[in-house]
């Protein structure tokens, strides 16, 4: 469905100066700063997959999505989305994708929600009959009936997000880009958004590229993640493989030497042991030689694993 190979995007902007007359110098400068937002990204996404496209703020996630929608032209590399080159076949590509940005809305602020949905129907040439059935389905699935005729500015964030989701899938695109669709939502609203994504993916075989900082979203929705930072792919693979690591025993001693049973003391004064099978035996053997002040067992979880990868 999506094939990205060696993608790079370099932004070029006039250099800004500070200090006296800085503004003036900025205005007339011919010096440019180059900032590489995406620096050689390669990945593929198959039809019907839900992948988590993750990375810290400023990692290049949004830039990638803007290239995939055809709005930005990359500096180099090749991209194919559903057989099309997004920035060359921009209009045809636009019909294949739906986009939701948690941080900004495509709905018209001053008008009732239904007006924005009608606009989407007409911009994407949805025939009246299909629009009606599609809207009916979304009204049930997202519970839009309560606020379909309410101006968007009066909607709660959760309602607005449901409206944005409806606008993104109204023309039944085979591909969805969701950029932080649960940001700022309460637990129940998050759950509603996740259920909607699962449902859309299941019934329509819709491919979903999900960007989020809420790893609970990822655990609920994705089987595979792509981690990027500084514009490069750090990890691409199944979540199961990522978290398939031994549990760990963390021990604090009253007075610890540099090494205990081959494990060095870390910066916080802790000793971290991988637990393989005999946990009581491991604890007993440590207790036999040292006085234990505190101990805990850490389960491998996505958050700590991802933190570990970013820290590398």
């Amino acid at each position: 469905m999506i094939r990205v190979d060696g993608l790079t995007k370099v932004f070029r902007r006039p250099r800004t100066f500070s200090g006296p007359l800085g503004t003036l110098r900025t205005l007339v400068t011919r010096q440019y700063e180059e900032k590489s937002a995406v620096a050689g990204v390669t990945f593929e996404v198959g039809e019907g997959e839900v992948i988590g496209y993750l990375g810290p703020n400023g990692a290049g996630k949004s830039t990638t999505i803007k290239i995939l929608t055809g709005i930005l032209t990359p500096t180099s590399g090749t991209v194919e989305v559903n057989g099309l080159v997004p920035w060359r076949d921009r209009s045809a590509n636009a019909r294949n994708v739906g986009v939701v940005f948690g941080q900004r809305s495509q709905l018209w602020w001053d008008l009732p929600l239904i007006e924005s949905l009608r606009l989407v129907g007409s911009l994407y040439d949805v025939p009246a009959a299909r629009f009606a059935t599609s809207l009916k389905k979304l009204r049930d699935l997202l519970g839009l009936d309560d606020f379909l005729d309410t101006p968007v500015r009066q909607l709660s964030l959760g309602q607005r997000m449901r409206g944005d989701l409806a606008a993104a899938v109204l023309y039944e695109p085979p591909l969805l880009y969701l950029d932080e669709p649960t940001v700022g939502l309460d637990v129940l609203a998050k759950e509603a958004v996740r259920e909607f994504i699962v449902e859309t993916n299941r019934t329509g075989r819709t491919t979903v590229v999900l960007t989020t900082h809420d790893l609970a979203d990822v655990e609920a929705l994705c089987r595979r993640i792509i981690l990027i930072d500084h514009g490069r792919v750090l990890f691409d693979g199944a979540i199961d493989a990522l978290v398939d690591q031994p549990r760990r025993l963390v021990v604090l001693l009253e007075s610890g030497p540099g090494q205990v049973r081959g494990v060095s003391r870390d910066a916080d004064g802790r000793y971290v042991f991988d637990i393989h099978d005999d946990l009581p035996g491991l604890i007993a053997s440590i207790a036999a030689e040292h006085t234990i002040r505190d101990l805990s067992i850490e389960e491998p979880d996505l958050e700590s694993v991802i933190k570990g990868i970013y820290a590398r």
């Binding site: 803007k66 209009s91 019909r95 994708v97 986009v99 809305s105 911009l123 040439d125």
Partner: peptide, 18 residues
């Protein structure tokens, strides 16, 4: 300014026509 022009540019219909 607020970035919602993203959606205008992502439409199948041309920006000027919109």
């Amino acid at each position: 300014r607020v970035g919602t022009v993203f959606f205008d540019l992502a439409r199948p219909v041309g920006y000027l026509r919109q």
